[in-house]
Amino acid sequence: MKVIIYTHPYQESFNHAILEQMEKIYAEQGQDYQVIDLYKDNFQPVLTAEQLKIYSSGKTSDPLVKHYQELIKQADELTFIYPIWWHNYPAMLKGFFDRVMLHGFAYESNDEIPWQGLLTYINKCTVITTSTITKQYLEEECGNPIQNTFINRTLADVGIAPEKSNWIHYGKVDLTPREEHDKFLDNLSNLYKNGQN
């Protein structure tokens, strides 16, 4: 199953158009997929004192967290769709990792195993981002946060090897005309049709 993890609050955004395009692609291919829409689900990204009491044991009392974990367990492919705010992913998505990627579910760590990611069953991961700045600027001037931090560290730490991940970015989203947006969406379809994503 394919799972899309979508992080944007505004339904008129270009991010939402990307989500709709991905749903269209999967539907046309007859793929089994589910969407985790963090804002629509009213996901609470902040760890509370109560939650921290059981955090180290890998437990949660939040049924939405348990639901997300069950979806991910059934997945062989993940797609993240989110805007880049302040040169990195939104706080909502950071909270998703804090609260969902728990010990015993996403990673193992003990005296014998310092750290081992457990989501090794994910065969492919696509990260689709948008921003007012270009991919080149993110790479050269901002420390390449998506590749270096999100893909090479965060995803790798939960067992998704960097070579399984692909980052697609749309920059200058606020300055480009609708025609360029449409071209990007069409290119997404072509990538998935040709298996190049």
Rank of each mutant, 00 (worst) to 15 (best):
K2Q: 08
K2L: 05
I5E: 06
P9Y: 08
E12R: 12
M22E: 02
I25C: 01
I25Y: 08
Y26D: 00
Y26Q: 00
Y26L: 04
Y26H: 03
Q31N: 03
D32H: 05
Y33L: 07
Y33F: 15
Y33R: 04
Q34D: 13
D37K: 10
Y39R: 07
N42E: 13
Q44H: 15
Q44Y: 15
Q44K: 14
L47E: 06
A49E: 14
E50Q: 15
I54E: 12
I54T: 14
Y55F: 12
T60A: 11
V65M: 09
H67A: 09
H67C: 12
Y68M: 15
Q69L: 06
Q69Y: 09
E70Q: 12
L71P: 05
I72P: 06
Q74S: 09
Q74W: 09
D76Q: 15
T79W: 04
T79Y: 03
F80M: 04
I81S: 02
P83M: 00
P83D: 01
I84D: 02
I84H: 02
I84M: 09
I84T: 11
H87T: 01
P90K: 05
P90C: 03
A91K: 01
A91F: 03
F96L: 02
F97L: 01
M101P: 02
L102T: 05
L102A: 05
L102Y: 03
H103M: 06
H103V: 02
Y107L: 11
S109G: 07
S109I: 11
N110K: 10
D111W: 10
Q116D: 14
Q116R: 13
Q116C: 08
Q116G: 07
L118I: 12
I122F: 06
N123S: 08
K124S: 15
K124C: 12
K124W: 05
V127Q: 08
V127D: 05
V127L: 06
T129D: 06
S131R: 11
I133M: 12
T134Q: 13
T134P: 11
E139R: 15
E141C: 09
C142W: 10
N144P: 14
I146N: 05
Q147Y: 13
N148W: 08
N152G: 05
T154K: 15
A156S: 14
A156L: 15
D157T: 10
G159C: 12
I160D: 15
E163G: 11
E163H: 08
K164C: 13
K164D: 11
S165C: 15
S165R: 09
S165E: 10
S165D: 07
W167R: 01
I168W: 07
Y170R: 09
G171D: 05
K172M: 14
D174V: 06
L175I: 08
L175N: 14
T176P: 03
T176V: 08
P177W: 11
R178W: 09
E179G: 07
E180Q: 12
H181I: 00
H181G: 02
K183H: 12
L185I: 02
D186A: 09
S189P: 01
S189C: 01
N190T: 08
N190R: 13
N190V: 07
L191A: 03
G195Y: 02
Q196V: 01
Q196R: 07
